[in-house]
Design a protein around this nucleic acid. Sequence first.
DNA 1: CGCGGGTGTTACCGATCAGTAACTTCCGGA
DNA 2: TCCGGAAGTTACTGATCGGTAACACCCGCG
Lengths: 195, 195
Amino acid sequence: MGLICPSGARPRDRILDAARDMFRKFGIKGCGVDAIAEAAGTNKMTLYRHFGSKDELIAECLRDQTRVVADLWAKMEADNPDPLDLLKAWVKASAMASCDSRGCDLANAAIELPDEGHPARKVVEDFKRAQRDRLADLCARAGARDPEVLADTLSLLVEGARVSRQSVGPEGPCQRFSRVAEAAIDNAVGARETA
Amino acid sequence: MGLICPSGARPRDRILDAARDMFRKFGIKGCGVDAIAEAAGTNKMTLYRHFGSKDELIAECLRDQTRVVADLWAKMEADNPDPLDLLKAWVKASAMASCDSRGCDLANAAIELPDEGHPARKVVEDFKRAQRDRLADLCARAGARDPEVLADTLSLLVEGARVSRQSVGPEGPCQRFSRVAEAAIDNAVGARETA
DNA sequence: CGCGGGTGTTACCGATCAGTAACTTCCGGA
DNA sequence: TCCGGAAGTTACTGATCGGTAACACCCGCG
């Protein structure tokens, strides 16, 4: 039928790509390993030889996604030497990512896999924690009055925008994410001398 | 084994309660109708006689949840005649709900059921839209300078708090939801004369 | 040339899935 | 008392699930 991906060279990479796509389209619990293997242009055996189980494949998929985000950060940092510029570039990038109809793969996985012992849960928690700390550090360098509070505010806003996009659609509250986030930044940074 | 619920009288209500509990514990896709019926102290046939399918059971579960929220609103409105008090009471209630380890059932369902045609999706979208409009109306009555923006801000924050609680845990950004939300309200309402 | 590792293929396992049929049992109301 | 509807019970369907065994294949490297 419709095999998606002859792109990547190695089967392992194709499986990872196909799994990411299908998890987004149908949800993690919504697609079986057989369908993933077929979409990757390979078979179930090869999938199980590279990843020991579906749960491990899920975890590895998310780890792969964290690498994508890390690369995006590196690129943004290279393009924006000024911390405040970088912070606003992050807002812009997050707004674009929130236009995506399926939000954050990591957060979605946490919702879809309630079992705290699932290998994917640790990946999600570590990533989200690191992301928030990185944001707090950036807020501090950008001169925010209370960087911790600003970082949490922005974290909540972006997380909310992504989930709101999925439940209400693009016309809902998420369309004002950029505006609200930038206002929060301006408010926190502009008031740095008044404290 | 462990049947959960001899509480409600009618089987229909017991099934609804059991389904809600199990969906929260294991995720919607994570539990089968047989297990739900057993947890409700009944059987699969009775379940299928009341709800035509699992998908319809899911949708009815969420409809039931919207009624719970509506009751909560009615109670809060009765207790808080002043709009600004009501708005802050809503923040308080939302903060407590965000302590819940599994967030908002409606939003979770939207994430777990990517198929736009699923009967549950309409329930979620209608509810979230109505919730935002109600909030915007309340913000206007509370004297916010820009009620639409404040309503969207609060919507994003509460949605973000609930999903963040699930991915990072209770020590993450969600612990500052109350503080940030109240600051947003004070900022929007306090500045109503300056515009 | 031959060898070995990565890959493909097929068939299978037991479990579970959503959903249905046929029959019995119980209870309340007339 | 009897009747009817709601509920319980058992057994079943066909599909799909995650995961595995056995074997054929192909290609690069020595």
